[in-house]
Design a binder for these strands. Structure first.
Lengths: 130, 130
DNA sequence: ATTTTAATCGCAACATTGTTGCGATAATAT
DNA sequence: ATATTATCGCAACAATGTTGCGATTAAAAT
């Protein structure tokens, strides 16, 4: 039945996500974790958290991978269909929970998951550009 | 003025794209190229072709990167705002040129580029599943 | 409280993907 | 034919992710 365990490393990773308003990469998590656990362990924790729908994986336009907390809205089936915004300047990735794309797809395709990422300048960097 | 040259390797890569109906990864191109040119050269050719708007880069949900030919429709500004479909079974990625998402974004964000990828079963694999 | 079990970990080793510097090569303009 | 310089090949490196396996350890069972 595959129970999932609470370990020190997992707790630490969850706390890091709790303190972050933006999505985090493996490297960023590792920097915060320090030598509390191994590099590989972080990969495995992230994998588990994704499977348990506690975080979701975000792939950016440039191919970089980040993770962010899931905010469940009492949906039965949990699909991460909201948009992500990737700032070209500060490189931060944020979930735009309320931005959901609408689209029409040919009937002979079966869609299981979607990825909708917008890239450009976030409000902070847009202001400091003026 | 930076002229761009036609080399044997570039011609070969373009021909491979011409013969493919789906998007191609660096590894797939390399397999077809054989030892006609170096691995690094393929990276540099892909980089150039992207800059010249001859191909566009597609980042899949799982983080894999592929490239596909651009189909220009007499637009002045060339934005790759169409959807891409990634089949979970045959792993092929195809451009859905006619599928374009509509969405509403907060005004304080400046969007320069978008990535809209759908993942699931393509028509071929959907049929063979029945 | 002690034992059992299997989920998780650390480590080492490896694979893939992508980048950079630099001297050599070759496409194009003159 | 010659000059210019975009492109190439090679080697070396870096980042990211994966796998196997014996050692730990959280949590269930006793």
């Amino acid at each position: 039945m595959k129970t999932t365990r609470n370990t020190a490393a997992k707790t630490a990773v969850l706390e890091i996500f709790g303190n972050s308003k933006t999505a985090l990469s493996h490297a960023e998590i590792q920097k915060q974790i320090g030598d509390l656990c191994d590099r590989v362990t972080i990969y495995r924790i992230l994998e588990r958290l994704v499977n348990d729908d506690i975080i979701h994986k975000i792939v950016n336009l440039d191919g970089t991978v980040k993770y962010a907390k899931c905010h469940h809205h009492a949906q039965r089936v949990h699909i991460h269909n909201h948009a992500h915004f990737s700032c070209e300047k500060c490189l931060e990735i944020t979930c735009l929970e309320n931005v959901k794309p609408s689209y029409i797809i040919p009937h002979n395709y079966k869609v299981n998951d979607i990825n909708f990422t917008l890239s450009g300048l976030c409000p902070n960097c847009l202001n400091s550009n003026i």
